[in-house]
Nucleic acid binder design. Structure first.
Lengths: 254, 254
DNA sequence: ATAATTTGATCGATAATCGAACTTATGTTT
DNA sequence: AAACATAAGTTCGATTATCGATCAAATTAT
Protein backbone atom coordinates (compact mmCIF):
# COMPACT_ATOMS: atom_id res chain seq x y z
CA UNK A 1 0.00 0.00 0.00
CA UNK A 2 2.71 2.46 0.91
CA UNK A 3 4.84 1.73 -2.16
CA UNK A 4 8.30 3.04 -1.51
CA UNK A 5 7.26 4.66 1.72
CA UNK A 6 7.94 2.89 4.98
CA UNK A 7 4.78 2.44 6.99
CA UNK A 8 6.57 3.63 10.07
CA UNK A 9 7.26 6.93 8.33
CA UNK A 10 3.65 7.84 7.77
CA UNK A 11 1.62 9.39 10.54
CA UNK A 12 -1.81 7.83 10.35
CA UNK A 13 -3.44 10.42 12.53
CA UNK A 14 -2.09 13.29 10.48
CA UNK A 15 -3.14 11.61 7.26
CA UNK A 16 -6.64 11.09 8.64
CA UNK A 17 -6.80 14.71 9.72
CA UNK A 18 -5.92 15.91 6.25
CA UNK A 19 -8.49 13.54 4.86
CA UNK A 20 -11.06 15.33 6.97
CA UNK A 21 -9.90 18.66 5.62
CA UNK A 22 -10.06 17.34 2.07
CA UNK A 23 -13.56 16.05 2.67
CA UNK A 24 -14.90 19.58 2.35
CA UNK A 25 -15.01 19.34 -1.41
CA UNK A 26 -17.43 19.33 -4.26
CA UNK A 27 -20.97 19.70 -3.06
CA UNK A 28 -20.07 18.98 0.54
CA UNK A 29 -19.15 22.47 1.59
CA UNK A 30 -20.78 22.27 4.97
CA UNK A 31 -21.05 19.07 6.91
CA UNK A 32 -21.96 17.76 10.31
CA UNK A 33 -19.62 15.47 12.17
CA UNK A 34 -21.48 12.30 11.22
CA UNK A 35 -21.45 13.44 7.58
CA UNK A 36 -17.71 13.83 7.75
CA UNK A 37 -17.28 10.49 9.49
CA UNK A 38 -19.28 8.79 6.80
CA UNK A 39 -17.54 10.52 3.91
CA UNK A 40 -14.07 9.78 5.23
CA UNK A 41 -14.91 6.33 6.53
CA UNK A 42 -13.58 7.28 9.95
CA UNK A 43 -15.07 6.38 13.25
CA UNK A 44 -17.42 9.12 14.40
CA UNK A 45 -15.47 9.82 17.58
CA UNK A 46 -12.22 10.01 15.66
CA UNK A 47 -13.71 12.30 13.05
CA UNK A 48 -15.05 14.47 15.83
CA UNK A 49 -11.65 14.92 17.44
CA UNK A 50 -10.03 15.79 14.14
CA UNK A 51 -12.81 18.24 13.31
CA UNK A 52 -12.49 19.88 16.72
CA UNK A 53 -8.76 20.13 16.19
CA UNK A 54 -9.32 21.89 12.88
CA UNK A 55 -11.81 24.20 14.52
CA UNK A 56 -9.44 24.89 17.39
CA UNK A 57 -6.72 25.81 14.91
CA UNK A 58 -9.09 28.05 12.99
CA UNK A 59 -9.51 26.05 9.80
CA UNK A 60 -13.15 25.21 10.38
CA UNK A 61 -16.03 27.18 11.78
CA UNK A 62 -19.23 25.77 13.14
CA UNK A 63 -22.75 27.11 13.27
CA UNK A 64 -25.66 24.88 14.23
CA UNK A 65 -23.43 21.82 14.20
CA UNK A 66 -22.60 22.36 10.60
CA UNK A 67 -18.92 22.84 9.89
CA UNK A 68 -17.38 24.69 7.00
CA UNK A 69 -13.98 25.92 5.87
CA UNK A 70 -12.73 29.31 6.99
CA UNK A 71 -10.54 31.62 4.91
CA UNK A 72 -7.56 30.48 6.97
CA UNK A 73 -6.93 27.77 4.44
CA UNK A 74 -6.15 30.53 1.95
CA UNK A 75 -3.16 31.43 4.07
CA UNK A 76 -1.47 28.18 3.19
CA UNK A 77 -2.24 28.76 -0.47
CA UNK A 78 -0.79 32.24 -0.09
CA UNK A 79 2.48 30.83 1.17
CA UNK A 80 2.74 28.66 -1.89
CA UNK A 81 1.87 31.51 -4.23
CA UNK A 82 4.28 33.92 -2.61
CA UNK A 83 6.99 31.28 -2.51
CA UNK A 84 6.72 30.88 -6.26
CA UNK A 85 6.43 34.61 -6.92
CA UNK A 86 3.02 34.14 -8.46
CA UNK A 87 1.50 37.39 -7.25
CA UNK A 88 4.60 39.47 -7.64
CA UNK A 89 5.81 38.32 -11.03
CA UNK A 90 3.75 35.63 -12.74
CA UNK A 91 0.33 37.28 -12.58
CA UNK A 92 1.57 40.62 -13.94
CA UNK A 93 3.26 38.84 -16.85
CA UNK A 94 0.09 36.87 -17.50
CA UNK A 95 -1.83 40.10 -17.39
CA UNK A 96 0.34 41.91 -19.91
CA UNK A 97 0.07 39.07 -22.42
CA UNK A 98 -3.60 38.76 -21.68
CA UNK A 99 -4.09 42.39 -22.69
CA UNK A 100 -1.94 41.95 -25.76
CA UNK A 101 -4.01 38.97 -26.91
CA UNK A 102 -7.33 40.21 -25.62
CA UNK A 103 -7.95 36.83 -24.00
CA UNK A 104 -7.84 35.41 -20.53
CA UNK A 105 -4.70 33.38 -19.85
CA UNK A 106 -4.44 30.67 -17.20
CA UNK A 107 -1.40 29.11 -15.62
CA UNK A 108 -1.82 25.62 -14.24
CA UNK A 109 0.38 22.95 -12.73
CA UNK A 110 0.18 19.21 -12.38
CA UNK A 111 -1.37 17.90 -9.17
CA UNK A 112 -1.71 14.16 -9.01
CA UNK A 113 -3.88 13.17 -11.96
CA UNK A 114 -5.39 16.59 -12.44
CA UNK A 115 -4.32 20.04 -13.51
CA UNK A 116 -4.73 22.77 -10.96
CA UNK A 117 -5.08 26.50 -11.62
CA UNK A 118 -2.28 28.51 -10.08
CA UNK A 119 -2.91 31.90 -11.61
CA UNK A 120 -5.39 33.43 -13.99
CA UNK A 121 -5.61 36.70 -15.81
CA UNK A 122 -9.19 37.41 -16.81
CA UNK A 123 -10.16 38.27 -20.34
CA UNK A 124 -11.15 41.69 -21.54
CA UNK A 125 -14.00 43.64 -20.04
CA UNK A 126 -17.35 42.34 -21.07
CA UNK A 127 -16.31 38.75 -21.51
CA UNK A 128 -17.79 36.33 -19.09
CA UNK A 129 -15.14 34.95 -16.83
CA UNK A 130 -15.89 31.29 -16.44
CA UNK A 131 -15.44 31.26 -12.73
CA UNK A 132 -11.99 29.79 -12.82
CA UNK A 133 -10.23 30.55 -9.59
CA UNK A 134 -6.99 29.60 -8.02
CA UNK A 135 -7.19 25.97 -6.99
CA UNK A 136 -9.70 25.02 -9.66
CA UNK A 137 -9.10 21.52 -10.98
CA UNK A 138 -9.21 20.40 -14.60
CA UNK A 139 -9.08 16.90 -16.08
CA UNK A 140 -5.85 16.04 -17.88
CA UNK A 141 -7.24 14.19 -20.87
CA UNK A 142 -9.91 16.58 -22.14
CA UNK A 143 -8.29 20.00 -21.89
CA UNK A 144 -5.46 21.78 -23.67
CA UNK A 145 -3.65 22.54 -20.46
CA UNK A 146 -4.03 18.99 -19.25
CA UNK A 147 -2.82 17.47 -22.46
CA UNK A 148 0.25 19.69 -22.48
CA UNK A 149 1.04 18.76 -18.91
CA UNK A 150 0.97 15.09 -19.81
CA UNK A 151 2.72 15.50 -23.14
CA UNK A 152 5.70 17.29 -21.67
CA UNK A 153 6.11 15.12 -18.61
CA UNK A 154 8.86 12.50 -18.60
CA UNK A 155 8.01 9.33 -20.52
CA UNK A 156 7.67 7.40 -17.31
CA UNK A 157 5.35 9.97 -15.74
CA UNK A 158 3.35 10.23 -18.95
CA UNK A 159 2.64 6.52 -18.96
CA UNK A 160 1.72 6.62 -15.29
CA UNK A 161 -0.70 9.48 -15.91
CA UNK A 162 -2.25 7.70 -18.87
CA UNK A 163 -2.85 4.69 -16.66
CA UNK A 164 -4.02 6.46 -13.54
CA UNK A 165 -5.96 9.50 -14.66
CA UNK A 166 -9.69 9.01 -15.12
CA UNK A 167 -10.94 9.49 -18.67
CA UNK A 168 -14.46 10.78 -18.41
CA UNK A 169 -16.32 11.37 -21.67
CA UNK A 170 -17.54 14.92 -21.14
CA UNK A 171 -18.82 15.26 -24.69
CA UNK A 172 -19.23 13.07 -27.76
CA UNK A 173 -15.85 14.30 -28.94
CA UNK A 174 -13.89 13.49 -25.81
CA UNK A 175 -10.98 11.23 -26.67
CA UNK A 176 -10.97 8.37 -24.19
CA UNK A 177 -9.11 5.73 -26.12
CA UNK A 178 -5.56 5.33 -24.87
CA UNK A 179 -4.04 4.97 -28.32
CA UNK A 180 -5.86 8.05 -29.63
CA UNK A 181 -4.55 9.97 -26.66
CA UNK A 182 -0.99 8.69 -27.09
CA UNK A 183 -1.03 9.85 -30.69
CA UNK A 184 -2.36 13.25 -29.69
CA UNK A 185 0.25 13.59 -26.97
CA UNK A 186 3.00 12.80 -29.42
CA UNK A 187 1.56 15.44 -31.74
CA UNK A 188 1.48 17.99 -28.95
CA UNK A 189 5.07 17.19 -28.06
CA UNK A 190 6.21 17.70 -31.63
CA UNK A 191 4.14 20.82 -32.23
CA UNK A 192 4.95 22.37 -28.90
CA UNK A 193 1.31 23.09 -28.14
CA UNK A 194 -2.04 21.38 -27.74
CA UNK A 195 -5.30 22.41 -29.33
CA UNK A 196 -8.28 20.59 -27.87
CA UNK A 197 -11.68 21.27 -29.40
CA UNK A 198 -15.07 20.36 -27.92
CA UNK A 199 -13.71 17.62 -25.69
CA UNK A 200 -14.54 19.20 -22.35
CA UNK A 201 -17.52 21.24 -23.42
CA UNK A 202 -19.22 21.40 -26.83
CA UNK A 203 -18.33 24.57 -28.67
CA UNK A 204 -15.37 25.35 -26.45
CA UNK A 205 -11.74 24.99 -27.48
CA UNK A 206 -8.61 25.35 -25.43
CA UNK A 207 -5.08 26.06 -26.55
CA UNK A 208 -2.08 25.45 -24.32
CA UNK A 209 1.71 25.55 -24.33
CA UNK A 210 4.16 24.15 -21.81
CA UNK A 211 6.16 26.21 -19.33
CA UNK A 212 9.57 24.57 -19.16
CA UNK A 213 12.80 25.21 -17.37
CA UNK A 214 15.38 23.37 -19.38
CA UNK A 215 13.89 19.95 -19.89
CA UNK A 216 11.83 20.11 -16.71
CA UNK A 217 8.12 20.77 -16.99
CA UNK A 218 6.89 23.45 -14.63
CA UNK A 219 3.33 23.96 -15.79
CA UNK A 220 1.19 25.01 -18.71
CA UNK A 221 -0.36 28.19 -20.04
CA UNK A 222 -3.72 28.08 -21.69
CA UNK A 223 -6.48 30.13 -23.26
CA UNK A 224 -10.06 29.07 -23.72
CA UNK A 225 -12.73 30.30 -26.09
CA UNK A 226 -15.49 29.47 -28.54
CA UNK A 227 -14.29 26.88 -31.03
CA UNK A 228 -14.71 29.01 -34.19
CA UNK A 229 -12.26 31.55 -32.84
CA UNK A 230 -9.46 29.00 -33.12
CA UNK A 231 -10.18 28.00 -36.68
CA UNK A 232 -8.23 30.77 -38.37
CA UNK A 233 -4.64 29.58 -38.80
CA UNK A 234 -3.07 33.01 -38.63
CA UNK A 235 -4.87 33.89 -35.44
CA UNK A 236 -3.90 30.54 -33.97
CA UNK A 237 -0.21 30.97 -34.75
CA UNK A 238 -0.22 34.44 -33.31
CA UNK A 239 -1.70 33.12 -30.08
CA UNK A 240 0.77 30.26 -29.88
CA UNK A 241 3.72 32.61 -30.32
CA UNK A 242 2.41 34.98 -27.67
CA UNK A 243 1.77 32.13 -25.26
CA UNK A 244 5.27 30.77 -25.81
CA UNK A 245 6.79 34.15 -25.17
CA UNK A 246 4.73 34.40 -22.03
CA UNK A 247 5.76 30.91 -20.97
CA UNK A 248 9.41 31.81 -21.27
CA UNK A 249 8.94 34.93 -19.22
CA UNK A 250 7.20 32.91 -16.52
CA UNK A 251 9.65 30.02 -16.50
CA UNK A 252 12.24 32.20 -14.81
CA UNK A 253 10.07 32.09 -11.68
CA UNK A 254 7.67 29.44 -10.45
CA UNK B 1 -4.09 26.45 27.44
CA UNK B 2 -7.02 24.98 25.55
CA UNK B 3 -9.54 27.56 26.74
CA UNK B 4 -12.98 26.16 26.17
CA UNK B 5 -11.64 23.18 24.32
CA UNK B 6 -11.21 19.88 26.10
CA UNK B 7 -7.66 18.61 25.80
CA UNK B 8 -8.98 15.19 24.96
CA UNK B 9 -10.72 16.67 21.94
CA UNK B 10 -7.58 17.94 20.30
CA UNK B 11 -5.43 15.61 18.28
CA UNK B 12 -1.85 16.55 19.11
CA UNK B 13 -0.39 14.71 16.16
CA UNK B 14 -2.70 16.38 13.71
CA UNK B 15 -2.02 19.78 15.21
CA UNK B 16 1.71 19.18 14.95
CA UNK B 17 1.34 18.10 11.37
CA UNK B 18 -0.50 21.28 10.47
CA UNK B 19 2.18 23.23 12.29
CA UNK B 20 4.71 21.67 9.94
CA UNK B 21 2.59 22.69 6.96
CA UNK B 22 2.29 26.22 8.31
CA UNK B 23 6.03 26.39 8.83
CA UNK B 24 6.50 26.93 5.10
CA UNK B 25 5.89 30.63 5.42
CA UNK B 26 7.61 33.93 5.01
CA UNK B 27 11.16 33.50 3.87
CA UNK B 28 11.19 29.79 4.68
CA UNK B 29 9.78 28.48 1.43
CA UNK B 30 12.08 25.56 1.17
CA UNK B 31 13.43 23.79 4.20
CA UNK B 32 15.32 20.69 5.18
CA UNK B 33 13.96 18.42 7.87
CA UNK B 34 16.24 19.82 10.60
CA UNK B 35 15.16 23.34 9.59
CA UNK B 36 11.54 22.35 9.99
CA UNK B 37 12.20 20.62 13.29
CA UNK B 38 13.90 23.71 14.62
CA UNK B 39 11.26 26.12 13.38
CA UNK B 40 8.38 24.11 14.78
CA UNK B 41 10.18 23.06 17.94
CA UNK B 42 9.44 19.43 17.17
CA UNK B 43 11.77 16.51 17.62
CA UNK B 44 13.62 15.84 14.40
CA UNK B 45 12.32 12.32 14.05
CA UNK B 46 8.77 13.51 14.63
CA UNK B 47 9.14 16.34 12.16
CA UNK B 48 10.53 13.87 9.68
CA UNK B 49 7.55 11.57 9.90
CA UNK B 50 5.12 14.45 9.50
CA UNK B 51 7.07 15.79 6.54
CA UNK B 52 7.14 12.38 4.91
CA UNK B 53 3.42 12.08 5.48
CA UNK B 54 2.89 15.40 3.73
CA UNK B 55 5.13 14.27 0.90
CA UNK B 56 3.32 10.95 0.65
CA UNK B 57 0.02 12.78 0.40
CA UNK B 58 1.41 15.13 -2.24
CA UNK B 59 1.55 18.37 -0.30
CA UNK B 60 5.31 18.59 -0.25
CA UNK B 61 7.97 17.79 -2.81
CA UNK B 62 11.61 17.19 -2.17
CA UNK B 63 14.71 17.77 -4.20
CA UNK B 64 18.16 17.50 -2.68
CA UNK B 65 16.67 17.12 0.78
CA UNK B 66 15.00 20.45 0.53
CA UNK B 67 11.23 20.34 0.87
CA UNK B 68 8.75 22.81 -0.54
CA UNK B 69 5.02 23.15 -1.00
CA UNK B 70 3.34 21.72 -4.09
CA UNK B 71 0.34 23.25 -5.83
CA UNK B 72 -1.84 20.64 -4.14
CA UNK B 73 -2.39 23.04 -1.30
CA UNK B 74 -4.23 25.26 -3.77
CA UNK B 75 -6.83 22.55 -4.07
CA UNK B 76 -7.96 23.11 -0.52
CA UNK B 77 -8.09 26.84 -1.16
CA UNK B 78 -10.11 26.10 -4.26
CA UNK B 79 -12.69 24.21 -2.25
CA UNK B 80 -13.13 27.18 0.01
CA UNK B 81 -13.36 29.61 -2.91
CA UNK B 82 -15.84 27.47 -4.80
CA UNK B 83 -17.86 26.87 -1.68
CA UNK B 84 -18.28 30.61 -1.25
CA UNK B 85 -18.90 31.25 -4.95
CA UNK B 86 -15.85 33.46 -5.15
CA UNK B 87 -14.79 32.55 -8.66
CA UNK B 88 -18.27 32.27 -10.06
CA UNK B 89 -19.90 35.35 -8.60
CA UNK B 90 -17.72 37.48 -6.36
CA UNK B 91 -14.73 38.01 -8.66
CA UNK B 92 -16.88 39.02 -11.65
CA UNK B 93 -18.72 41.55 -9.49
CA UNK B 94 -15.42 42.87 -8.20
CA UNK B 95 -14.21 43.11 -11.75
CA UNK B 96 -17.16 45.09 -13.03
CA UNK B 97 -16.85 47.66 -10.24
CA UNK B 98 -13.12 47.68 -10.69
CA UNK B 99 -13.58 48.69 -14.32
CA UNK B 100 -16.18 51.28 -13.38
CA UNK B 101 -13.82 52.88 -10.87
CA UNK B 102 -10.62 52.28 -12.78
CA UNK B 103 -9.04 50.88 -9.64
CA UNK B 104 -8.15 47.46 -8.30
CA UNK B 105 -10.59 46.18 -5.70
CA UNK B 106 -9.77 43.60 -3.06
CA UNK B 107 -12.05 41.45 -0.94
CA UNK B 108 -10.65 40.26 2.35
CA UNK B 109 -11.90 38.38 5.37
CA UNK B 110 -10.88 38.14 8.98
CA UNK B 111 -8.48 35.34 9.87
CA UNK B 112 -7.35 35.32 13.46
CA UNK B 113 -5.69 38.65 14.06
CA UNK B 114 -5.04 39.37 10.42
CA UNK B 115 -6.97 40.16 7.29
CA UNK B 116 -6.61 37.69 4.45
CA UNK B 117 -7.18 38.35 0.76
CA UNK B 118 -9.95 36.23 -0.67
CA UNK B 119 -10.35 37.81 -4.08
CA UNK B 120 -8.77 40.61 -6.03
CA UNK B 121 -9.58 42.38 -9.23
CA UNK B 122 -6.50 44.07 -10.62
CA UNK B 123 -6.49 47.72 -11.59
CA UNK B 124 -6.52 49.04 -15.11
CA UNK B 125 -3.88 48.13 -17.66
CA UNK B 126 -0.59 49.82 -17.06
CA UNK B 127 -0.91 50.09 -13.32
CA UNK B 128 1.50 48.05 -11.33
CA UNK B 129 -0.32 45.37 -9.47
CA UNK B 130 1.24 45.21 -6.05
CA UNK B 131 1.57 41.47 -6.00
CA UNK B 132 -1.48 40.90 -3.87
CA UNK B 133 -2.68 37.39 -4.33
CA UNK B 134 -5.27 35.19 -2.77
CA UNK B 135 -4.10 34.28 0.72
CA UNK B 136 -2.05 37.42 1.20
CA UNK B 137 -2.19 38.65 4.79
CA UNK B 138 -2.58 42.22 5.96
CA UNK B 139 -2.30 43.70 9.47
CA UNK B 140 -5.58 44.81 11.00
CA UNK B 141 -4.49 48.06 12.60
CA UNK B 142 -2.68 49.78 9.77
CA UNK B 143 -4.87 49.16 6.72
CA UNK B 144 -8.29 50.30 5.61
CA UNK B 145 -9.55 46.76 5.15
CA UNK B 146 -8.20 45.71 8.52
CA UNK B 147 -9.72 48.64 10.32
CA UNK B 148 -13.11 48.01 8.77
CA UNK B 149 -12.95 44.36 9.75
CA UNK B 150 -12.32 45.31 13.36
CA UNK B 151 -14.77 48.22 13.41
CA UNK B 152 -17.68 46.13 12.22
CA UNK B 153 -16.99 43.08 14.34
CA UNK B 154 -19.10 42.57 17.46
CA UNK B 155 -18.03 44.68 20.45
CA UNK B 156 -16.66 41.63 22.18
CA UNK B 157 -14.65 40.53 19.17
CA UNK B 158 -13.44 44.07 18.57
CA UNK B 159 -12.01 44.30 22.06
CA UNK B 160 -10.39 40.88 21.69
CA UNK B 161 -8.78 41.92 18.43
CA UNK B 162 -7.54 45.18 19.91
CA UNK B 163 -5.91 43.21 22.67
CA UNK B 164 -4.52 40.33 20.64
CA UNK B 165 -3.49 41.79 17.30
CA UNK B 166 0.09 43.00 17.04
CA UNK B 167 0.47 46.73 16.39
CA UNK B 168 3.63 47.16 14.41
CA UNK B 169 4.63 50.73 13.53
CA UNK B 170 5.19 50.39 9.81
CA UNK B 171 5.63 54.12 9.29
CA UNK B 172 5.86 57.23 11.42
CA UNK B 173 2.13 57.70 10.95
CA UNK B 174 1.04 54.23 12.05
CA UNK B 175 -1.47 54.53 14.87
CA UNK B 176 -0.38 52.15 17.60
CA UNK B 177 -2.04 53.73 20.63
CA UNK B 178 -5.10 51.75 21.71
CA UNK B 179 -7.18 54.85 22.46
CA UNK B 180 -6.34 56.42 19.12
CA UNK B 181 -7.38 53.23 17.42
CA UNK B 182 -10.61 52.96 19.41
CA UNK B 183 -11.54 56.46 18.35
CA UNK B 184 -10.75 55.70 14.74
CA UNK B 185 -12.76 52.49 14.86
CA UNK B 186 -15.74 54.37 16.24
CA UNK B 187 -15.37 56.88 13.43
CA UNK B 188 -15.24 54.11 10.85
CA UNK B 189 -18.34 52.53 12.32
CA UNK B 190 -20.27 55.79 12.14
CA UNK B 191 -19.02 56.75 8.69
CA UNK B 192 -19.44 53.29 7.25
CA UNK B 193 -15.95 53.28 5.79
CA UNK B 194 -12.31 53.59 6.79
CA UNK B 195 -9.72 55.79 5.16
CA UNK B 196 -6.21 55.00 6.30
CA UNK B 197 -3.39 57.17 4.99
CA UNK B 198 0.34 56.44 5.15
CA UNK B 199 0.04 54.02 8.04
CA UNK B 200 1.19 50.90 6.24
CA UNK B 201 3.43 52.51 3.67
CA UNK B 202 4.33 56.16 3.25
CA UNK B 203 2.46 57.75 0.39
CA UNK B 204 -0.09 54.97 0.16
CA UNK B 205 -3.70 55.24 1.28
CA UNK B 206 -6.35 52.59 1.52
CA UNK B 207 -10.11 52.96 1.57
CA UNK B 208 -12.42 50.18 2.73
CA UNK B 209 -16.07 49.42 3.39
CA UNK B 210 -17.63 46.46 5.19
CA UNK B 211 -19.45 43.60 3.52
CA UNK B 212 -22.35 42.76 5.81
CA UNK B 213 -25.21 40.33 5.77
CA UNK B 214 -27.71 41.83 8.16
CA UNK B 215 -25.69 42.68 11.22
CA UNK B 216 -23.12 39.98 10.57
CA UNK B 217 -19.75 40.99 9.17
CA UNK B 218 -18.64 38.88 6.25
CA UNK B 219 -15.56 40.74 5.05
CA UNK B 220 -14.32 44.02 3.67
CA UNK B 221 -13.75 45.60 0.27
CA UNK B 222 -10.83 47.90 -0.26
CA UNK B 223 -8.94 49.95 -2.79
CA UNK B 224 -5.38 51.13 -2.47
CA UNK B 225 -3.55 53.99 -4.15
CA UNK B 226 -1.23 56.96 -3.84
CA UNK B 227 -2.36 59.21 -1.00
CA UNK B 228 -3.02 62.34 -3.09
CA UNK B 229 -5.61 60.47 -5.11
CA UNK B 230 -7.84 60.23 -2.05
CA UNK B 231 -7.66 63.88 -1.14
CA UNK B 232 -10.42 65.10 -3.40
CA UNK B 233 -13.71 64.82 -1.51
CA UNK B 234 -15.88 64.27 -4.58
CA UNK B 235 -13.69 61.49 -5.84
CA UNK B 236 -13.65 59.93 -2.41
CA UNK B 237 -17.43 59.92 -2.07
CA UNK B 238 -17.84 58.46 -5.50
CA UNK B 239 -15.49 55.62 -4.57
CA UNK B 240 -17.25 54.99 -1.29
CA UNK B 241 -20.63 54.77 -2.98
CA UNK B 242 -19.31 52.39 -5.62
CA UNK B 243 -17.64 50.20 -3.02
CA UNK B 244 -20.85 50.08 -0.97
CA UNK B 245 -22.87 49.07 -4.00
CA UNK B 246 -20.29 46.41 -4.73
CA UNK B 247 -20.36 45.23 -1.12
CA UNK B 248 -24.10 44.76 -1.26
CA UNK B 249 -23.86 42.80 -4.46
CA UNK B 250 -21.25 40.54 -2.90
CA UNK B 251 -23.01 40.08 0.42
CA UNK B 252 -25.57 37.81 -1.22
CA UNK B 253 -22.83 35.24 -1.65
CA UNK B 254 -19.70 34.57 0.42
C1' DA C 1 -45.45 14.11 26.11
C1' DT C 2 -43.01 10.39 24.45
C1' DA C 3 -40.15 8.12 21.28
C1' DA C 4 -36.58 8.22 17.95
C1' DT C 5 -32.64 10.03 16.50
C1' DT C 6 -28.67 12.58 16.68
C1' DT C 7 -24.83 14.45 19.18
C1' DG C 8 -21.55 14.69 23.16
C1' DA C 9 -18.78 12.52 26.94
C1' DT C 10 -16.27 8.58 29.16
C1' DC C 11 -12.51 5.57 29.77
C1' DG C 12 -9.81 1.29 29.53
C1' DA C 13 -7.25 -1.40 25.90
C1' DT C 14 -4.49 -0.91 22.19
C1' DA C 15 -1.39 0.50 19.05
C1' DA C 16 0.64 4.51 17.20
C1' DT C 17 3.79 7.96 18.38
C1' DC C 18 7.90 9.63 20.50
C1' DG C 19 12.72 10.38 20.93
C1' DA C 20 17.39 8.80 22.51
C1' DA C 21 20.99 6.45 20.53
C1' DC C 22 23.15 4.67 16.66
C1' DT C 23 24.45 4.14 11.68
C1' DT C 24 25.03 5.93 7.27
C1' DA C 25 25.55 9.55 3.94
C1' DT C 26 27.01 14.09 2.45
C1' DG C 27 29.92 17.97 1.84
C1' DT C 28 33.54 20.94 3.85
C1' DT C 29 38.05 21.93 5.45
C1' DT C 30 42.91 21.32 5.87
C1' DA D 1 42.69 13.08 -0.63
C1' DA D 2 41.91 12.18 4.11
C1' DA D 3 39.75 13.57 8.06
C1' DC D 4 36.33 16.09 10.02
C1' DA D 5 31.88 18.04 10.72
C1' DT D 6 27.39 18.12 9.75
C1' DA D 7 23.10 16.34 8.24
C1' DA D 8 19.95 12.51 7.26
C1' DG D 9 18.10 7.78 7.97
C1' DT D 10 17.13 3.79 11.08
C1' DT D 11 16.03 1.22 15.16
C1' DC D 12 13.35 0.02 19.11
C1' DG D 13 11.60 0.07 23.86
C1' DA D 14 8.78 3.23 26.80
C1' DT D 15 5.20 6.15 26.81
C1' DT D 16 1.05 8.10 26.00
C1' DA D 17 -2.06 9.72 22.58
C1' DT D 18 -5.48 7.59 19.95
C1' DC D 19 -9.26 4.55 19.24
C1' DG D 20 -13.95 3.15 19.58
C1' DA D 21 -17.54 0.62 22.23
C1' DT D 22 -20.66 2.25 25.44
C1' DC D 23 -23.28 5.38 27.93
C1' DA D 24 -25.46 10.14 28.74
C1' DA D 25 -27.49 14.26 27.03
C1' DA D 26 -29.71 16.96 23.79
C1' DT D 27 -32.44 17.66 19.91
C1' DT D 28 -36.02 16.71 16.76
C1' DA D 29 -40.03 14.12 15.24
C1' DT D 30 -44.25 11.79 16.16
Amino acid sequence: MFEKYNEKDISMTFAKGLEVLEAFSGTDRSMTIPNIAEKTGLNRTVARRLVLTLQYLGYLECSNRVYKLTPKILGLAGEFLQGRDIGKHVTPILRSYSLKLGEGISFAMLDGTEAIYVAHSPSDPGMITQGFTVGYRLPLHATGIGRVLVAFSTDEMQEQLLQDAPRTAYTEDTKIDLEDLRLDLKKARINGYALVANEFEQGVTSLAVPVMRGSALIGALGIVGPTPRFEDANGLFERILALRECAEAIAVFA
